[in-house]
Amino acid sequence: MNGMKYKGYCARIDFDPEDKIFVGRVIGINDVISFHGETVSELESAFAESIDDYLSACKKLGQKPNKTYSGNLMLRIPVDVHAAVATAAEIKGQSINQWAARVLEEAAHAH
């Protein structure tokens, strides 16, 4: 997995072979937060420090930090897929939301 989590924020991690460092970038927010480290330990520390600094700066400026995802997701899908989802949810005794949340969670963790 090429990711890290801290205080609800997620980062994508890549390796820069030219500089021989790990480079991270916080994803899922509009602000740009990046960090790097030569070792995993340095990278983890830099990530935590970057998020803590970001939250502190937002507080000092009186700004709300960009939040990670809200948990609300609107999808536009073909009518036949919608009908199949509704049927699958009903068979499981779940709402479409419960069924979709479970299926999406399984798919997201299957990578």
Rank of each mutant, 00 (worst) to 15 (best):
G71D: 01
K5N: 09
R25F: 03
D31A: 14
K5Y: 06
F22Q: 04
G28R: 08
I21N: 01
E49W: 02
A46N: 04
A57P: 08
K64T: 14
D19C: 11
K7M: 08
L104R: 02
T39V: 13
C10S: 09
Y69R: 14
F47N: 04
S34E: 07
N66H: 14
K67T: 06
K5E: 06
P78F: 02
E105P: 15
I33K: 02
V85Q: 00
F15Q: 08
G8C: 04
R25P: 03
S41C: 13
L55M: 13
A107D: 00
Y69H: 15
W99R: 06
G28H: 04
E90K: 15
V85Y: 00
G3A: 09
A108N: 01
E38M: 15
K67A: 13
F15T: 09
D19L: 14
G37Y: 05
P78L: 03
P17G: 09
I13Q: 03
G28Q: 08
A83P: 01
V85D: 00
A46E: 00
S50I: 12
S56Q: 07
T87G: 02
R76G: 11
V40N: 04
L61I: 07
V79Q: 01
Y54S: 14
N72P: 06
L55K: 15
M74C: 10
K92A: 11
D19A: 15
I27M: 13
E106K: 12
E44Y: 06
I21C: 09
G93Y: 00
E49M: 11
R25K: 10
D52K: 09
S50V: 12
F47P: 10
V85P: 08
S45C: 12
K7T: 04
F22H: 06
T87L: 07
C10W: 05
G8A: 01
N72L: 14
N2L: 08
R102P: 15
M4H: 01
I91Q: 00
H82C: 10
R76T: 13
K67M: 07
W99D: 00
K67C: 07
F15V: 13
Q63M: 15
H82Q: 11
G28Y: 05
K20D: 02
G24H: 02
H36L: 10
K67S: 12
H82F: 07
H36K: 12
A48N: 02
E105A: 15
E106T: 10
G93N: 01
E106A: 14
D19H: 05
I96Y: 00
Q94R: 15
A89N: 01
L55G: 15
